[in-house]
Structure formats: C-alpha cells, structure tokens
Design a protein around this nucleic acid. Structure first.
Lengths: 334, 334
DNA sequence: CCTTAGCACTCATTTCACAATAGTGCTAAT
DNA sequence: ATTAGCACTATTGTGAAATGAGTGCTAAGG
C-alpha cells in the first residue's frame, strides 16, 4: 500500500519524466510539494521499495519502472478530454466525405504519428462475418480466368485462376452458376468447407473435367479469408524520441518493425483501448503499444500507436478513442 | 588520362574497399603489384589528382570517390556471370509455378536483400497500355455501388461509388450497359476523356438524373490510371552495413526511405540495369541505387537495390539482370 | 512519528594529456 | 621510373583528474 502523497508524487514523477526524459531528482519537486528534498527522498525510497520507481545508477534521480507506468495508467492518470488542437486536425479528415474510410484511417494515423512523434500502425482485414454476395468469373484466355468475389458489405477481391488444362466456356459458366447458387449468403469463413463438401459432389456430376476446375476454384476462393495487411506510418518518427540514442537501439527497433509476424503481434481483439507497456507487448521491451480494435460493417481491424514507455498516455489513449469512434461512425453512414 | 597500372590499382582499391570498408593503404598493395609502397603512393596521388580517390583525413589510406566508383562501374568492372549459389536461391522461386508473379518478385527481392544486406524495392503499376475489358457494377444498397474494372490482361480493380441521391436499378444497369458498349478496348489512360466527351452526352439523353450518375462513375473510373505501389524489403538490412554507424546516419536513411514521393525517386524508365551512385540518385548521397524497369503483359514496374556506395556492383547488377529476365519470362507463360 | 538539515559517498560525464599506430608526402639516391 | 628513409599528421585509445547531480543515512527538532 502506498499513501496519498506518495501517489501524487508518483504521478508527478511519471509526468515529469514523460516531459523531460531525464531522471527526476528530489530537489526539483520541493516547491510543488512544499517540503524538503529529504522528505521527497524518503517517499521516493518507499515507492522504489514498492517497485514503482527505479534508479538508472546508484546516485541518479528516479525513473518510473514498468510497474510504475502501469500503476499510473490504471490509477493515477486523469482521463482528460482530447485537446481541441489535436481534435481539430483529425476532424477535417473525417469531415471530408470524399475520402474513403481506409484512406481516412491512414491519413489520421499519419497525423497522429506526426504530432506525437510515435509510430502508428493499422491492421485491416475483412470481417470474418462477411457474407459472400456474388462470384464473377471472367475468362482471360483458355487457361486463365479471373475470379472476383464480392461480399455483402461491398468488399471486393479478385484472384487469378490458372487452369491446368483448357476447359470449355460452357463448363466455366456452368460452374460459376453453381457457385453463385450455392454460395450466396455464405459467411466467407465457411466457403472452403462448403466448397469441399457441398459443391464438389455436385460439380462432379455436371462437369467433365471436374478436378481441374474444382482445384482451380478451390485455391482461388479459399484464400480470401486470411487477407490482412499491416501498414506502418512514421517508423522514422519514433526514432526522434530520445530513448533511441544509440545505433543499436535504433537498428533493433527497426528490425522489430520489419518482423514478419507483425500481424499476430499487433492484432487486438478487445474493443476497449488497451495499453501494453514494455514486456507486456510482443514488439519490444522498450516500447509501449496502445491499441484497439475497430469494427465497422464488413471490415475490422486494429489501430495502434507505438511509442516509448515514456509515452503521453492520456493523449494517445484519447486520440485512439476519438479515432475509433469516428471510424465506426463514418463506417455506418457510408 | 590514367595509365594501365593505375587502372589496375584503382580496381584493386575499389574492390578492396568494397570488401573491407576500410581506407586502403599503400603498403597493403605491395605484394600484389610487386613494387614498393612509395611507387603505389605515387600512383595513388595521380589517381587522387584525377579525382578517383579521396582521403578521409590527411594521413589516412585512400577511399574511392564517387567518380572512382563511376569509373570502376563503367570501365574496370569485369562483367561476371551470376554466381551459382546466388542463382540457386533465386531459381527455386521461379520454378515454383504456384507462385503468382507479384509474389515471386517480392520473394526474390527478399532473398536478394537477405544475402546482400542491402535494401530492395519493387515498384509496380499496371501498364499504361492496358485496355479496359469490362466494367461490372454491383449494387450494395440504394446509394452505394461497387464498380469493378477488368483490363484485357487480367488486372482487376474495384472502387466504391457513392451516389448523392438514390437512383433506380434500371438506370444503373442502363448506364453500365452504355459504359461497356463504349469503353471496351479503350486504353485505360484514355478512359477519363472518353467519359467526358463521348459518354456524358449520351447518358444525358437516357438517364433522368444524369449528373449524379455521371459524377459518381467519373470519380470511380478515372482514378485507376495512377495506381502505383512502392514496396521496400529489408530496410533493416542496409543498416548492417558499416557506413551506418552513427545514430544520425541511421535516422537519416530511414527517414529518406519513408519519404512520400518515393515513387518518382525510384521509378526507372530504362530497360537496362542502371547504376546511380551517390549524388546521382535522388534518395541519398550516401547510397547507390541499382535499378531497372521490367515489363510484362499488363504490368510494368521497377526493381531496385539500394546499398552503400561501397556496393558489390557486379553481383548486384548480375542479380538484377537475372531477376528481370526471369520476371519477363515468367510473365509471358502465365 | 513525520520532517529536515547536514554530510559523506557514488557514479556519470567531461576534459586533458599522452602514447601508439597507420598512414602520408617529400627528398635524394638508384 | 623506382625506392628507401624520414619528418609529419590525424585518429584512436587510455588513464587521471575535476565537476556535478543526486542519493542514503544520521541526528536533531516539530
């Protein structure tokens, strides 16, 4: 248990450190707490004992520990409204009806990244409860087709289909007809199994060279589900943060950003804005990831901000909340 | 004019520096040239006079200047075949018939980036001489449609269309019919002007609320031309090069990579593999960009390798040539 | 029991001097 | 044209000394 003045002290230290990026010494807090540096030092010692503060070396000022930030985020931070200035910059984007939702999201994150000097990430995918609305097949030549899948929410994806052997036009259109008849309304995730168990037996009866056709369509239609994309904005911005002041730090964080399995590391399943400090996230111990899931008709995804642990938490959390709500509002009236 | 031994010397110095990344001293070259370090020094002085060599400080060994690299690439480098090892790694990718061309390109560049520790870039766009093959329009609700454009080479793009006011289904399908009748076979670049001058007058006669419909389709169909995409692979790899050994160097090059107008900086219009050393390229004075344009039915683009000026020129040039020819070969038989 | 003044102590940072090293340019001799 | 010899010069590394910010602890006072 820590006392009430100690809470104030912890808050003050965290906020000061967020501003200055320098260890906070006892003397600098005297005026604010109207007491001597020795008193502050005593409280600091308790807070260190409790695990909320750390020293960089034996005679340095104090720096928040991971637990310190966590305590600050959970208990001390006062939920401010998003600042008028920040809001203004984001607003213009969402007021622009011309902009498509995806572009609006990208643009917003660009702005957030620029004004905060953190890195932002958007991960999008088509919602798994999308339903298939139509399959179009367009022949390019005797061995190549294009399959186009449209979902009920207006998402379109196309895929080239290569046939091992030539197949007649009638057989293709026959297959397409069957596919449409049987697949319309099917959730996109269920398409592969439906193809295998319901469609395959039927095609077999109608189509001569059914294996060739079936295989081609199977590979074309079953890859739609896992379509995700990670987009980073402002990788260079986070490097402006003073924590990245050695070559190795910089190289390390850039490599982490390039990592292949970023999707799984970023993806968030919680609707709230969540904060993952240091070792709580999978990217890197030296950063904090603030993220949330958004969901609008037909699409869902994660938006995230990556910054140093010494991050402007209220500001970032507020901006993400604001952004999430605007994405979802804009999504609805599109 | 520089003499024959001096050419050999320049070649030797460039190659040694490429290997070691350290200024090359006169003593280290005695055995190779069977003469004393003083002789080498004399020749070095001439080469420096001629602008091909530089010193990092008054008493350091020599380093190639930009002109030195240029001379090396143009006159001294002996065009080797691509090494068996390098080739093997790339071959397996192009032998895999499953892989789509775009994926094959990405994968190859990933490999090149990994084995060389340089950064690679692919910039793709649909070829400007593509022709429109079909326009599909699919209604989502009374105010939203999806327009799908397919080109003769099998490229598909879709765009959401928002109508300002509700328009009847018949009017939409009527418009679609007109569009298809008049636009099939039109080069994709010519679509906007054809819309304005040929189609608009016709729609006016058939469609009641023609302005709403026309505007929606115009904005949907005229944005297809400029669809390009830059994809970097291995941004972190180039940082392994010893030239990036200060925080500022690293931050600087990463910022350059993030720059918005990368498309124009990377895009190459020459079919040959071209080398842009230092200030010859638009990215950054400290790097060399080796790039070439590739062109296959329906698509064209640029592949590029970015490395330090101290780059393994023959190797990179060979790999790019190899890659380009394989891309174009694979493109043909798809 | 909480607060505070005082003091000894620690560690990071900066500065300076000094030696070692690797290279050059120049001159004079071959 | 080549080379041996020598003076000269930056860079790199090392170690010692000075500075400064900040702590922990003790003892005294509310």
């Amino acid at each position: 248990m820590i006392g009430s003045r100690q809470k104030d002290l912890l808050r003050e230290i965290v906020e000061e450190y967020i501003k200055s990026a320098r260890p906070v010494g006892s003397k600098s807090l005297c005026k604010k707490f109207k007491c001597s540096s020795a008193t502050i030092r005593n409280d600091m010692a308790s807070l260190e004992e409790a695990g909320y503060l750390e020293k960089t070396h034996i005679s340095s000022g104090r720096v928040p520990s991971e637990e310190g930030y966590r305590y600050y985020v959970d208990n001390l931070m006062e939920p401010k409204k998003i600042s008028g200035e920040d809001m203004l910059k984001l607003q213009t984007i969402f007021n622009n009806r011309e902009l498509e939702l995806n572009d609006a999201i990208s643009k917003s994150l660009e702005i957030i990244s620029d004004i905060t000097n953190y890195t932002s990430v958007v991960l999008g995918k088509s919602s798994s409860d999308n339903k298939l609305q139509k399959v179009e097949v367009i022949p390019i030549n005797s061995k190549q087709l294009i399959a186009i899948v449209i979902t009920d929410t207006g998402h379109v994806e196309s895929k080239n289909v290569y046939l091992e052997e030539s197949v007649s036009t009638e057989e293709i259109s026959k297959t397409t007809e069957i596919l449409n008849k049987m697949l319309i309304g099917t959730p996109i995730d269920d398409v592969p199994s439906k193809l295998e168990f319901d469609i395959k037996p039927i095609i077999r009866n109608y189509i001569q060279n059914y294996e060739v056709v079936y295989n081609a369509f199977y590979s074309a239609l079953s890859n739609f589900t896992s379509n995700r994309d990670v987009k980073f904005t402002g990788k260079a911005n986070i490097l402006k943060q003073p924590e990245f002041n050695t070559v190795d730090d910089v190289k390390n964080i850039i490599s982490k950003f390039e990592s292949k399995d970023m999707v799984s590391k970023i993806e968030e399943s919680d609707d709230e804005v969540k904060v993952y400090i240091g070792s709580e996230n999978e990217i890197d111990d030296s950063v904090t990831v603030v993220k949330t899931k958004y969901k609008v008709d037909g699409r869902e995804g994660t938006i995230a901000i990556i910054g140093p642990k010494r991050m402007e938490y209220e500001r970032v959390i507020n901006m993400l909340e604001y952004l999430k709500s605007h994405i979802e509002a804009k999504g609805k009236d599109e």
